[in-house]
């Protein structure tokens, strides 16, 4: 069927709209990845050394957390499609929980950096040299923007859960759940690239 009148619901269209929005999000981060690649190219050695400052373990733990949460949100969609609303809600709850744990880790990680005097504009950072300034500038900007997206994603998931409880998302009408899930996967997708670029490559 090609045409849809106003009264008719068009899930395919909402999905297309969501994907188009995801494209813009990818390119938003893309701008930062361009900046990262240029400054890494200009300051290869300093980036290499500065990367060792970051705590690999926290990075790995957060990666595992996000990957798992991405699976649980995908499972919540499967559960909804199969009509298992309890499981669906459970999976969303697990996802939200994992997201919160991720943010907590991030909070402590940033906190330690601040204690060490590593934050944008700090006197200590200025002594370290240009490469380090760029590395930590990008680190805070990119993980910060990512964390912001996590917060938005969590908010969306909470709204989704409320809608499920109210019956506004049902096994025959789950476009909002699907699109909220897509947003959450986007957050995961970005992290897949942030993780090696900041924590691993040194």
């Amino acid at each position: 069927m090609e045409t849809i009148t106003n009264v008719h619901r068009d899930d395919e269209a909402s999905k297309l709209g969501m994907w188009l929005f995801i494209f813009t999000e990818i390119l938003l981060f893309g701008g930062l990845f361009i900046v990262y690649s240029i400054y890494r190219f200009n300051n290869a050695v300093a980036f290499h050394l500065a990367g060792e400052e970051l705590n690999d373990t926290i990075g790995i733990i957060n990666t595992v957390i996000l990957l798992t949460s991405s699976m649980t949100v995908a499972m919540s969609l499967t559960a909804m499609q199969k009509g298992n609303i309890r499981l669906c809600l459970g999976m969303i709850a697990v996802t939200v929980l994992l997201g919160l744990v991720f943010l907590t880790n991030k909070y402590f990680e940033w906190g330690i950096k601040f204690e060490h005097g590593l934050y944008p504009g700090s006197a200590f950072l200025k002594e370290l040299g240009h490469g380090d300034i760029m590395f930590f500038g990008l680190y805070f900007m990119m993980t910060g923007l990512h964390a912001l997206h996590i917060i938005v994603g969590l908010t969306i998931l909470v709204v989704v859960a409320v809608f499920i409880r109210k019956g506004r998302i049902r096994p025959d009408k789950y476009a909002f759940l699907e699109n909220g899930g897509l947003y959450w996967h986007l957050v995961d997708l970005i992290w897949i690239f942030l993780f090696p670029l900041f924590y691993l490559i040194h």
Binding site: L28, G30, G31, V35, P120, I133, G137, L145
Partner: peptide
């Protein structure tokens, strides 16, 4: 989106002096 992030970086630059 590219100009969006660029403008955000200018704002960050103004307030946090990141140095981009």
């Amino acid at each position: 989106p590219i100009v969006g992030i660029t403008l955000m970086m200018v704002i960050a630059e103004r307030f946090l002096h990141i140095g981009f």
